[in-house]
Write a protein that binds this DNA or RNA. Structure first.
Lengths: 217, 217
DNA sequence: AAATATCGGTTGGAATTCCAACGGAAAGGT
DNA sequence: ACCTTTCCGTTGGAATTCCAACCGATATTT
């Protein structure tokens, strides 16, 4: 377990926890450590998620599989990231998504209710505060995504997206961590339609861009 | 304050808290009680939300105001409901929405970090568990909304929406708490286009409905 | 009961987006 | 340098949605 201390200390869940307090917290939290080889399933949609995972090493992918068997990557979680926390604390019904190890992976599984008992330990409240912050920020991000997807025209989706992104990065021009296809997927539109909308907006003087570097006027 | 005990006891925040434990928890949480007359502003978009509110009496509305001054009702919060918890615990930037009292209203404002100190009190952990559950379930609801809005065709939005609703209500037929206009707003489409899609889906034998009573085949 | 308002389905043309295909530019591999 | 792959803008026709308008049915009001 000690081998994962550096990863844990840089995770959002253990943010601001000092090294000396980490061991007692972990001793009380009693995470279960499991390893997975590349391209194996960690959780299957339909299971009950009684715990949530922290990626100690490797990378996992959250997948949505529709009735026809089409796979969609919902999210990628890298080292020090956590997954399943919303399902674990909502404790409502089976998982609607599956989780795969995309590389050789080690996951620390935490029992949600056990973390609540840590409040009396040194920095136990910090840990709970981190957990609340993680869930709260996820809600805000999803709220923003809903706001974008609620726009009916591609140009409006782009503008809403860029306005939020400009606030987040607090600088112009901004660099988007997406290529056109990924950006189109995020906005819920066709890549070619997005390209057309972007060049028309550039022509109209609303925005400027070159590759992933965008300016909003 | 005692007058609000019945409301608090039926709120999701104090769910499962017994009457005898309520007073000590409130004494430590020290919510600030404020009253508002109908149609007055509680929070203005742009402010920092340092606390979150629990509606002790009345009803409040969460509003989004765009650059042109158009108001959109994002949510309505009734007695015993809470608002602003995600912004309070995310502690990230100014409010993107405003909050109005739609009737004469009393609000209890809680300091987010103060609730973390309650863990050692009787049922203090229950309170934190409730808080985590509230945030977690909000994330799941938003996830579902994103899933619906990501569908590009109205028929697919309707099907996704009805499938999720059928799971939630666990019975057929199901009753939707929306009229057509509200349903169209929720799905992010035009009312007339929704009506057309619904009747075409009924003709195709995919669904059946009469007013708000829907069946999914 | 009559008048009024609300709600939901329909319709037709305009606007928008999808979809498949193509091609040039850039990046990566051998 | 050559080949291959990936990325992105463009194009044209099909499909879908928007938008305004209209209508009948069903409440609601007076």
């Amino acid at each position: 377990m000690q081998q994962f201390y550096p990863v844990l200390l840089k995770s959002t869940l253990f943010r601001q926890i000092t090294a000396v307090n980490l061991a007692p917290l972990l001793a009380a939290a009693q995470p279960i450590l499991k390893t997975f080889t590349a391209n194996t399933r960690i959780w299957q949609a339909g299971e009950q998620a009684a715990s949530f995972g922290l990626v100690g090493a490797g990378t996992v992918q959250i997948l949505k599989e529709d009735a026809q068997g089409n796979r969609t990557i919902v999210a990628t979680v890298a080292e020090a990231g956590i997954f399943g926390e919303a399902y674990a604390y909502a404790s409502t019904g089976p998982l609607p998504v599956s989780v795969d190890a995309s590389t050789d992976t080690t996951v620390l599984f935490f029992e949600p209710q056990r973390l609540l008992n840590l409040a009396h330990l040194p920095q136990g409240e910090q840990l709970l505060s981190n957990l609340l912050q993680i869930l709260a920020r996820k809600s805000l991000l999803l709220n923003q995504k809903v706001e974008i997807l609620s726009q009916r025209k591609i140009a409006d989706k782009v503008l809403t997206f860029l306005q939020l992104e400009a606030k987040r990065q607090a600088r112009q021009p901004m660099f988007l961590p997406y290529n056109r296809q990924e950006m189109a997927d995020f906005l819920g539109v066709e890549r070619s339609a997005l390209s057309a909308a972007l060049s028309s907006m550039k022509k109209a003087g609303l925005i400027d861009y070159r590759k992933n570097e965008f300016t909003l006027f």
